[in-house]
Write a protein that binds this DNA or RNA. Structure first.
Lengths: 345, 345
DNA sequence: CTGTTAGCGCATTCAC
DNA sequence: GTGAATGCGCTAACAG
């Protein structure tokens, strides 16, 4: 049923090697033979067997994406799909296929990665998250497989990664609120075991300190990347004796919860509480009021991750001089949720 | 560097065939040999080469997902990611890998599918959309490759597919509005070349007719699966001499645009215009007001698609008696956007 | 320029 | 029960 090189060769009256040479665009081949073989391949509907090719070339022309397991519902959907789009687009352009993998537990995740890399099904991997003390990173680094991390590792400084400068992004977001005249600014954070939560919190702290503003621990709450987290935080914040007039929120989705919470408590945004969050998902401009957000270029993050991974794979050699950590620039999109100066200015 | 069966065999003092037999759980093998070999495999860190395995077994244990090319921004993100999650989860459980593919144009898409299937890199494919007259479907059907369509084909009745009963779903949504006392009901549709748009429109029409309600062509607008479509539709609808009091909207995302449009025109939902839409994305309950929506079980759609594809692949034989079209049940989630009866009831 | 040979790592015949 | 041989489809040396 399947048409092989051998079949084509027989039909064309040449040797299999010749056909193979035509396929790979070998230089030392007569133009006429090449043309003839190509026509016959077309006629017979020849398609190279990718597996056989990989087996002998010891390279698969494909990479894999490791989806994190947890139930980060909303966050995952919007954020990861955009990331995946970037990765798949770039990989396609470079002639690479993308394999998606996930595991129910961290152990399963590791098994999947191990099977894929050690079984030589893929040439490299992209990790879409950065937890504290991640076993998958340890494995990949130890075994020396090409991989890139979207995010930052707290353990290793010398691994390939693509990231937002989250510290600076949070600094910028906070500074914006300060420049609007806010002095009491709170922070709604994400899960403390994610590096991104910690980096953003740190940036917020730095901005507050640099501007000589008070930093109250009760103005900082931790939660998930879920709207519920923002929702719950509100009943807490608004009952504080000295409540903040503005909030930096770790993710747009959480902001949606914040908005809902405030509306139920009959507070209005931005008059009672101004808001800036992160990621600038498309829906943040559709909420009432539209949310100010730091755009981190998610698609670009994915696109770049794929690019540097494939470069690394093709280079073989790990040149020690290369940049390991790639930063995608962010920018603040100011919308209605932060357009208010307290103190009646 | 790589450990092969041969290496293990040499170290264990047995033949490669024996090791292979242990690997595949062959029955005629002495318990002791089996144990010994397994230990050595563990010690040496043996991992089967997936490519070599596929080459000889003529099966890859992987399937591919074809992402549609267009820029269906929001729709894609939320909807497809959920679908993918369902597919990947089920495939993993069945021991299958999932490959994601897309093309910039329909031609590229076809090339990718062809390369993957004909090149024997995957055993089957899942199509995530259903356009009118899709060339990819023609190809897959003609060549006899296992595939399943998430959606419905207008051309073939006998292909494997997983779908919502969109006609009935729209009928239900419309009936709900009618039962609330609405008589002038409009419909905001999606791209007319997508089957889903047409099915939902048809269900709306049927419900209107069955209830003896007038069906005005100016109450129906077509657009994209984007919030802009809903936004634009509003300035049109609300300027109609006899404007509808309720709307069935083809997708939640479009409803977001509708809400924004109405709020800018100073109309309120549901008092001035009641709303029901489809897909029940997580954010539909977060908007103000929360949107009534038909939940179509997106994750389930993906999960089922993967399941029947893999079943088909493993069965080899296409038993003619089997069900080709699988319907995932939907249900209406009533929220504030439709909780209003016109005429002051 | 072209043909011959020898594997890539594995599974599946056969023999014994 | 186990070992030896053969081939999956292809590429990469070798020779000419």
């Amino acid at each position: 049923m399947t048409v092989t090189i051998k079949d084509v060769a027989k039909r064309a009256g040449v040797s299999p090697s010749t056909v193979s040479r035509v396929l790979s665009g070998h230089p030392r081949i007569s133009a006429e033979t090449s043309r003839k073989v190509k026509i016959i391949m077309e006629e017979m509907g020849y398609h190279p067997n990718i597996m056989a090719k990989s087996l002998v070339s010891r390279t698969t022309n494909s990479i894999c994406i490791i989806l994190p397991k947890p139930a980060e519902e909303l966050f995952s959907n919007l954020f990861f799909m955009e990331l995946i789009r970037g990765i798949v687009t770039q990989a396609s352009r470079s002639g690479y296929d993308v394999l998606i993998s996930s595991g129910a537990t961290e152990k399963e995740e590791l098994e999947a990665v191990s099977r894929l890399l050690k079984g030589r099904r893929v040439d490299g991997a992209i990790l879409l998250y950065s937890r504290k003390g991640d076993a998958v990173i340890d494995f990949l680094k130890e075994e020396g497989y090409p991989f890139v991390l979207v995010g930052r590792s707290d353990k290793y400084d010398d691994i390939l990664s693509v990231d937002t400068d989250n510290r600076m992004a949070a600094y910028d977001a906070t500074s914006h609120l300060i420049s609007m005249g806010h002095k009491r600014i709170g922070f709604v954070s994400g899960p403390p075991n994610l590096i991104v939560s910690r980096d953003r919190l740190e940036g917020y702290r730095a901005a507050m300190e640099d501007n000589g503003l008070e930093l109250k621990s009760e103005w900082i709450v931790e939660g998930e990347f879920l709207q519920e987290s923002g929702y719950r935080a509100m009943s807490f914040f608004m009952n504080l004796p000295s409540r903040p007039t503005a909030l930096v929120v770790v993710d747009d989705i959480v902001s949606f919860g914040v908005l809902r919470g405030l509306s139920e408590l009959n507070y209005s945004v931005p008059a009672d509480l101004a808001l800036v969050s992160f990621n600038n998902i498309p829906l943040s401009e559709l909420s009432t009021p539209p949310i100010s957000s730091i755009d981190i270029g998610i698609y670009q993050l994915g696109y770049t991750a794929s690019q540097i991974l494939i470069q690394t794979i093709q280079k073989q050699v790990n040149e020690p001089g290369g940049t390991k950590r790639h930063i995608i620039p962010h920018r603040l999109i100011v919308r209605e949720s932060s357009m208010y100066s307290p103190g009646g200015k």
